[in-house]
Simulated scan of single mutants.
Amino acid sequence: MKFALRYLLFVLPTFALVGCGGSSSSPVSNPPTRNTIASLQHITTVSSTVDPTNGDQNPYAIAFAPTSFTGDGNPAHVQPGDLIVSNFSNASGVNGAGTTVEAIRNGKPVTVYNEMNAPTASGGTVSTAGPVAIAFAPNGNMWIANYGLSGTGNDGNVQIVTPKGIVNQTFTDPRVVAGWGQAFNGGYGGKLAFFTVNVNAGTVVRINISIVNGKPSFSFDQITPDLGHSGNNASNIVGPQGMVHTADDTLYVADGATNSIIAIPNSTTTGMTTGRVVYQGSPLNQPAGMTLNPLNGDLIVANQKDNNLVELTPSGQVVAVKPVDLTPVNPITGAGSALFGVVATTDSNGNLVVYFTNDNQNTVEKLSQ
């Protein structure tokens, strides 16, 4: 496919509606379209995502920095509310060789982090590549899932990076290599945890955070068996990827290998589980990124195999399908696949707005009314 407490200072709730129930392969329903992607008619280009310093391209992760931390005003640092995008490939188009993270400001990409020789909090530097997914802690720290420079995932990791671009932690535990997704639990039940994906194994892993003598301590729990994956390198790997955590502690996982959405209840404390199939089959078509509709709690999923966005209720009802890139996708090679990351928010009038990365154009696009 073209495809501390400096670590965590305090907890904000996850704003979402509770999801429950489940079904599969139900037809598109016809509810009122207000506040869904069906009501959005305009696609505009927000910005190029090509890194201005080294030409990195192929945007994957997209996320908004929280507004809950204090920015320092330095344009080279992540600031509250920034729209953040990562580049998976280098200027030559080598998948997994990208190293840069951009803040999209005033229609342009601004480099806020480079994974090559990044400074560490303990002194020295660390290098990695292939940032796939990003989730934020309330203090502005980025949790980045990296697939790795080799393109096999074996040298991937999860990093915690401050808004100033300092690496606080690099996790290389075998359970969290081959990073392909990232989500925060919102501090559910007073417990802090991030979720990541080892796509080479098709598994979801929880990184638990506790405070010991005023310092963060981390532990790892694999919470799913292989949910389904295929491929073996950065150009063809497919598996569990997009993740959304909701206020009832359900973790939703999109799996492109099985064309399914899986719900994992009690995700902050659960042991090994296969979860519950919320939906499987068409119109899902190799789902990748996933986000939450902030107005109704629906799941909005980005398809790689047809460049459609699909909106579903947490109970498995298809609400809408919206084509956002008309490039034909080769069903064998994946050439023409545009979509990877997606994030939803509201505009100043309270209307739904969806931002997504377009790998065909190396841009961030906006779907709005």
Rank of each mutant, 00 (worst) to 15 (best):
G341P: 10
P66W: 06
A76W: 08
V321W: 03
G130E: 00
G242P: 03
A335I: 10
V278N: 00
T268L: 00
G156A: 04
V132P: 06
G140Q: 03
G156E: 02
V342L: 13
V78H: 00
N362P: 09
D72W: 10
G73L: 01
Q280K: 10
T250K: 09
G81H: 14
Y147R: 09
N285W: 13
R6K: 13
G297Y: 03
I300N: 01
V277A: 11
V197R: 03
V301E: 04
D306P: 03
S26F: 10
N296H: 08
A263T: 09
S25Y: 06
V324G: 01
V343F: 07
Q361V: 13
G190A: 09
V354P: 01
I62A: 08
R6V: 14
I332E: 11
Q57Y: 10
S368I: 05
N30K: 12
A288N: 14
Y252A: 01
N208V: 13
Y355G: 02
P323C: 01
Y7W: 13
Y279V: 03
S337R: 12
G350P: 02
Q79N: 14
D56A: 10
S25F: 08
N232H: 14
F15I: 08
T250V: 15
A263R: 11
P32S: 08
T49V: 11
N362R: 06
G179T: 12
A201C: 12
D325Q: 01
K108Q: 09
A4E: 13
V319S: 00
S39M: 04
L299I: 06
S24L: 11
F356Q: 05
T120L: 11
V205Q: 00
L299K: 06
L149D: 13
H77C: 05
Q41V: 15
F184S: 12
G93Y: 13
Y113Q: 14
G153I: 04
K108D: 03
D173C: 01
L339R: 02
P323G: 02
A61P: 15
P216A: 11
G336R: 02
G153A: 04
K191Q: 08
A4Y: 10
G289T: 06
